[in-house]
């Protein structure tokens, strides 16, 4: 009798515990849904007023209360592309170094150093970019770019050290650890037998990497790159410090620009009118949507890899 009572209460406790854990797992899903719904609801006034024009007009005038997202979207995309162009070759190089080239003793310290780069808070990157890197660029790098590459419209203007190029470069340093660590993990999954057969044919290390490792890991690398892109698109503080916050679109990469995240960081607390605030929230929604798509894509491409071999730890 007593035994069955205990059994019953244990079953109830079990159901309760499972229910509680299920609730918190569900919370993650609900959170995502709520973020979309709330952002959509708050941006409704702006969506009604500006319609689709919000996406392709460039005017950002809080006084006249006319808002268009084009300059912010343009800045977000271009600064992220610059970051990717710089970060991808470097990250691949680091992954090759860590998996194929470095002596065993160096792998852990170098790998840790690169990963520490990811744990430095983004505001530190921003502040360092503003006080150290921007003056360095303005004095030593941008004058050279203007003198020797100034025939391209990309490198015309005043060397301020602040603008699209510096922002893209700092973003590149920030996303290198993400791309390189995912790429390294994928390189490690290349079956050793494939590589050994390459070496058996007399291939050099580089030939094995180029013809065997990279083709095998191609879609995973692409996933890693898109993951880095997703990070770069949404990065806020580092960019806010060095991009110059100008709502005009310029062909030159050394001119000040702005991104969605920098606009939000700078203007959100200043927005007193409802429609201004709503326009900013719509920018946030746009950013959330873009990064969601990018990250989902990246996740799908990388997870194809992790399912191939059961990895422990």
């Amino acid at each position: 009798m007593e035994f069955s009572g205990r059994h019953k209460s244990a079953r109830f406790d079990d159901a309760l515990f499972k229910g509680v854990t299920f609730f918190f797992a569900l919370l993650v899903v609900l959170l995502m849904v709520f973020i979309f719904i709330i952002l959509l609801k708050e941006s409704m006034p702006a969506i009604r007023q500006f319609g689709l024009g919000f996406l392709y007009t460039n005017e950002w005038d809080p006084v006249q209360q006319r808002f268009g997202a084009l300059s912010a979207v343009y800045g977000t995309v271009v600064s992220s592309i610059i970051a990717i162009v710089i970060a991808v070759p470097v990250s691949l190089g680091i992954a090759v170094f860590l998996t194929e080239m470095a002596p065993k003793r160096l792998r852990v310290p170098v790998g840790t150093a690169i990963e520490l780069l990811a744990s430095i808070p983004s505001i530190i990157y921003g502040m360092w970019g503003l006080f150290v890197f921007a003056p360095f660029l303005a004095e030593h790098v941008e004058p050279l770019l203007i003198r020797y590459l100034g025939f391209l419209p990309l490198f015309r203007g005043t060397p301020l050290g602040i603008g699209m190029l510096p922002a893209g470069f700092i973003l590149a340093i920030m996303i290198i650890p993400f791309i390189s660590s995912v790429t390294r993990d994928i390189f490690l999954m290349v079956p050793p037998m494939l590589k050994e057969s390459g070496y058996g044919m007399g291939a050099t290390k580089w030939e094995v990497i180029k013809n065997i490792v990279i083709p095998f890991a191609r879609s995973g690398i692409l996933g890693a790159v898109i993951l880095g892109l997703g990070r770069a698109l949404g990065e806020t503080m580092a960019v806010t410090f060095v991009i110059g916050n100008s709502h005009s679109i310029s062909a030159s990469l050394i001119d000040p620009a702005t991104t969605i995240s920098a606009t939000l960081a700078n203007e959100f607390t200043e927005a007193v009118e409802d429609i201004y605030l709503s326009g900013l929230v719509e920018l946030g929604l746009l950013l959330f949507f873009i990064t969601f798509v990018a990250l989902a894509l990246a996740k799908l491409m990388i997870s194809r890899f992790s399912y191939k071999g059961e990895r422990i730890g």
Binding site: V28, M32, T236, F268
Partner: peptide, 25 residues
Amino acid sequence: AFAVRFLSDILVSAPSIVVGVFVYA
């Protein structure tokens, strides 16, 4: 469980400023 994992992984890398906007709202 797959959906929860998938969304968690996206949320890990989602722009933190958007979370600020959400909580503001």
